[in-house]
Amino acid sequence: MTLTQADIDREIAELHAVAPKSGHPLRDFAPYRSSVLRHPKQPLVPVKDPEAAELTGPVFGVTDVTPLDADLTRRHVGEPLGERITVEGRILDRDGRPVRGQLVEIWQANASGRYPHQRDDHPAPLDPNFTGVGRCLTDEEGRYKFTTIKPGPYPWRNHRNAWRPAHIHFSVFGTAFTQRLVTQMYFPGDPLFPYDPVLQSVTDPAARDRLVAAYDHDLSVPEWSLGYRWDIVLDGPAATWMEEGR
């Protein structure tokens, strides 16, 4: 029996009706079929050790990135196809303090919704001028900035007619390993949001909204690119929180 979008919509609605409004996705969210066998069933074990290694984390420096790494449109001889955009924002901890000098990595599909990955067999064209990988370090105000092209939505095989909304994958480090975050940035007004079990795995609608960038006309560059702003807030304690006795 083929699983249809209507089946998935019904499952999502049922879970949203009963699940607590969580700020992070449920690890067990059956409409996203891959989650079924890949989430722990035992409760997580809390660690309260102020000496825990995880309250510190990896450090990065200028040798870990090159300035060109933040411009995904200049990694090949020619210009990539698609709508050129800049994405800018700040990385903050839960107290609003900037996360400085930390690594931000992004990856994304091209304008046609295709990844240059051997297992992506979506029959959309590869772009010889676009790989879709970038990285940078946050500045003194916790700011990151990338120049890229707007990724396309793409089909996947979670169910019949499953499409992912356009998104950019983000990997972010805080000052502690406990603040580690891998997430996805979405684009405002995407009609695919309600159909996507990955986005809908976040049961709190306000939290889902925090995954959507804002179009910012002041960030658009005349005759060049459209600007999007997306701030990221890292969860989890940092060592300084423990030092302050929280």
């Binding site: 700020g23 992070h24 996705p25 990955h117 994958h169 891998v182 990955v198 925090r210 807030v233």
Partner: peptide
């Protein structure tokens, strides 16, 4: 307090 940005899967790619 700022509300944290939700996690999303690293995906297959």
């Amino acid at each position: 307090m700022n509300r944290p940005t939700p996690s999303q899967t690293v995906g297959p790619f």
